[in-house]
Design a protein around this nucleic acid. Structure first.
Lengths: 196, 196
DNA sequence: TTCATAGGTTGACGCCGTCAACTTAGTCCT
DNA sequence: AGGACTAAGTTGACGGCGTCAACCTATGAA
């Protein structure tokens, strides 16, 4: 009972923290406000998280887990090449549909990775999905080349997602038509580059 | 005299703020600490910056200006293709040599762009350098295609820089050899993709 | 000479994170 | 059954932060 109640509070903290971040941004996350919204004292969350950064790390860890799940749930495709393409689409979709989640994972001021190993192991799992898919598409004969290309693909997708998300490009003067074609164009270029 | 003294304080604030961010991270930036280090009262900076976010925006604006200057100062190359390659190298060099500057520009919790137009206009200038270079490399016949490819190139470079900078990859288990080859490999892939 | 104003000062307010000390309820030996 | 231990939650305090308000002072224009 105590076990379940406490687990409840831990979960609820992470949940409310995410909602709060959505409202006021990462820098507005306040452990006291989380406690307030849950109707508990300002110290209660400290029984479950050593510091406010640990709370943030837990939120981020969950985002990585969601991300991995989304990538894995993509349509399979009839062959490895199609599966790769679907992966690219899924990656981008996730970033566009869940900008907050994506920003939390790859936005910068993350809790120091060294101090939050559980967060990092979830991140590693996400990258592994991408790496495996590339290796599969090419028979996995040249591990190093696969890794380099996985990095290349990830870079391109990540960069595009980040850039489009910021709205910086509206300001820069690119037309909407350009922006909406950016993903298929990038996927096409990646295909050309990798000879798939 | 008053003019020059005040301009001094404004400049000094931005300078000290950058150094402070380097020490304690963006989230540790404190207007009071800046004032303390400059030996002025905690309110003095407010005569030059409306809020601490405005101070941050000024710091970021300067980073964009430095970035543009670095890109423009790259070796010219004997032809447009070489000039493009040098641009890619310069982009990446800047990101690796000045991780703090780079993180400030593209790390997430930036001051709201709408409220800091001077910051954004400096950012626009940096993207224009890249766009112009791509257009030049291809004679500028197809504007939309040039824009799409500029976006593709920028995405790839930006993504790679961001990913490598986080050290996430060490944790993920990639060998050092892979990481050191990542840039040339990515530039090569971009070349293949664009048929340059 | 007057006087508005830019730049700088002190003081106060209400947030925040976090340490410390206390309460309470449940668990586990004996 | 009873007592010790512990996990989970509470209240209270401290110092740091951003920022509003009020005050001071020199300078340059009228």
């Amino acid at each position: 009972m105590a076990e379940s109640r406490s687990r409840d509070l831990r979960d609820q903290c992470a949940e409310v923290a995410l909602k709060l971040i959505g409202e006021v941004g990462v820098e507005g996350l306040s452990i006291r406000e989380v406690a307030r919204r849950l109707g508990v004292s300002h110290q209660a969350p400290y029984k479950h998280f050593a510091s406010s950064n640990h709370l943030l790390a837990e939120v981020v860890r969950r985002m990585y887990a969601d991300f991995s799940a989304y990538l894995l749930s993509r349509p399979k495709g009839r062959n490895e090449a199609e599966s790769m393409e679907n992966l690219g689409i899924a990656y981008f979709e996730f970033a566009m549909r869940n900008p907050l989640h994506y920003r939390l994972m790859f936005g910068n001021p993350l809790p120091d990775p060294d101090q939050h190993p559980e967060m990092m192991s979830e991140a590693r799992a996400a990258f592994t999905i991408l790496l495996d898919s590339i290796a599969a598409a090419r028979g996995g004969k040249n591990v190093k080349l696969d890794q380099l290309d996985a990095l290349f693909v990830w870079s391109s997708l990540h960069g595009l997602s980040t850039i489009l998300r910021t709205n910086a490009l509206d300001e820069i003067g690119l037309k909407q038509a350009v922006l909406s074609e950016a993903l298929p164009h990038t996927l096409m270029r990646i295909g050309v580059a990798l000879g798939i």
